[in-house]
Design a protein around this nucleic acid. Sequence first.
DNA 1: CGCATCTGCGTACGCCGTGCGCTAAGCTGG
DNA 2: CCAGCTTAGCGCACGGCGTACGCAGATGCG
Lengths: 238, 238
Amino acid sequence: MPADQPPIPSVWARPQRKREQPALTREHIVTEAVRLLDEEGADNLSMRRLGSRLGAGATSLYRHVASKDELLELALDEVYGELPLPDAGEWRATVREVAHALRAAILRHPWMAAKLGEAGLAYLGPNVLRQSEHMLGIFERAGFSLDEADQAVSTVTAFVLGISTSEAAWLSMVARSGQSAQEWIERLWPAAERAVQDYPRLRARYAAQKVEDTSKSGDSAFEYGLERLLDGLQARLP
Amino acid sequence: MPADQPPIPSVWARPQRKREQPALTREHIVTEAVRLLDEEGADNLSMRRLGSRLGAGATSLYRHVASKDELLELALDEVYGELPLPDAGEWRATVREVAHALRAAILRHPWMAAKLGEAGLAYLGPNVLRQSEHMLGIFERAGFSLDEADQAVSTVTAFVLGISTSEAAWLSMVARSGQSAQEWIERLWPAAERAVQDYPRLRARYAAQKVEDTSKSGDSAFEYGLERLLDGLQARLP
DNA sequence: CGCATCTGCGTACGCCGTGCGCTAAGCTGG
DNA sequence: CCAGCTTAGCGCACGGCGTACGCAGATGCG
């Protein structure tokens, strides 16, 4: 380490970065965190790594964010902000649109599912609140009481979260492995075949899924469940 | 550190623990891990802590378990083993029973929800497989094709997982805080009130929930959603 | 200009998961 | 009964983690 030089009395040599923009903003940090999570997965988000991506030290982030957990809550709410607030005529179509959008967001950001599982939905992010209010409105206008609309929203959200979580876990696993989904299936196949051999129904299912396109079968399972749910809700209306 | 003593040539002094039972078994480790998770939450499970609970060093566990992740998969499957495989007459009642049992297991072991979110359901634990096969059978006997039974199982499971995950996250948060649920609500109240004040429907909902028993309202939301889902599925049968 | 305030950072602490190589206990074949 | 091999458990060490703390420089205010 060289001895610290005497300061050079020149305007040009002076550091002079005069905080044109504060260089580190909560917003900036959160959007970069989302990027890092998307690109490298939840395991690879550390304050040090995030800091260095922003050209800053790890502990500098703590000026803008209380803890890593808080940062993750912010990231979650950020993604919720991507969701639309559609308001078409027919309630089923509207709910369908929101449900599809939520699932799409989770599949775009697979780390979301696990984090939602830890944080729950009670954490009061403004975008989450806005989305909830909006969905309550949709069901109320469809003819549900506020009480029942609340339960309906919980039900639909739970279904979307639950089914997308499984898909997201699968996506994360494949992404971590660095292989393609097809390769991963091939590799898993022998173990899976052995595991299900005592279960005739599972065996038939696995065999069928081997030849299917994985993402297509996810789509159809999602749509099937969503329609059943909407059917069940619709039956409550006069 | 004292110099190592010369060995005492007596039968009684010799260590003599002759591996009556191997003292550390995969089974033993997994059940203790579940206990630790239940008592202290997922954040407080570390290999060192688990080891010391078993009177062993942290790295000794690795003789029986490949990694912490694998241990968690084993713990998950262990809990799945608690679930019943009911086989009564009416399919709705049977599905209801399984759904309630799964939710109860998640609420008993709140760490499960988050771990399921990371691992997905594709991890081939024998107890998970048995449960899946059983549910496929229930729906098939009810009159669904195997194809549709598979989607129905996914749907019901997704709903139960999704809604229980939210409840479990809430329970974990309360447990971590060391306070009672009621105290926690009181403390959160001012912030919540401020957050929802621009959203009339949410405001009404929050106000109503303040006086309700939290676990009761969880029960009723669960039952509502489950019945709607079963209604929607039943409509597919002749 | 002087001072209070705020931002970023270096250092450090106590954890974590886990790879590696040692010891000693049991098993096996002669 | 011995020699050799397998195996369970452990101590140590490495690199990484979240984050508390206090300093240094820049900024904004009187």
